[in-house]
Write a protein that binds this DNA or RNA. Sequence first.
DNA 1: CCATGATCATTA
DNA 2: TAATGATCATGG
Length: 214
Amino acid sequence: MKIITRATAIKNLKKHIGKDLRKLALQYKITTYETGKQNKGWKGLILEKLAGLENNVSKAPNGLSYELKSVSFRYVKNKLVPKETMAITMINPKELEETEFFDSHCWNKLKAIIFCAVMWHGKNSENAEILKVASLDFAEDDELIKEIKADYDFIREKLIKHGFESLTGKDGKWIQARTKGTGGMNPRTKERRPITRAFYARTCLVKKIFETAS
DNA sequence: CCATGATCATTA
DNA sequence: TAATGATCATGG
């Protein structure tokens, strides 16, 4: 079994900067939306391949491994900015309640994430180029860590006091708790699926990360 | 079956 | 345009 370290993954990814992701997707046999359906996750999947990972897109084991995320960028007033927030990890209400920031999956993942900026060409985009690869090193930005922790604590406290249901995407300056579920109906019961949430990095945080990295 | 990948839709 | 909430295909 081949072990790919973060450094190796970054190196691998950087070799592909500027390349057309769709071509690569075809090459790696990853469904984009050739089937007529929309796979929102294909960019993420292809990046994992490029990094040298075999598969394993689902459920990150522990924290032993790094995380690979892609972020859409677009031009606003001639500047390249993150288009969307970025999912960090699912929120497990019980864990959030019991776990402090520095022990949380959220933080463990955040500090291990490799960010990939990807050009966004509009909805249903079939093309995308890798713009930039950055890894997060917060060690130099003490203040930012504190603020992120503050957001985490705020969300955590809200969960404890008001319950999981009361969380919204409005909370947090750098990170937020957005809904993130399978969506739609449960095909069996026809009931609404339960709402789940995940930590998201706001665009301003993503921006800062890329600024820090460069 | 459901968590994970991340984007889409809607409203202000 | 920005922000929030909702949604989908995929793979194990």
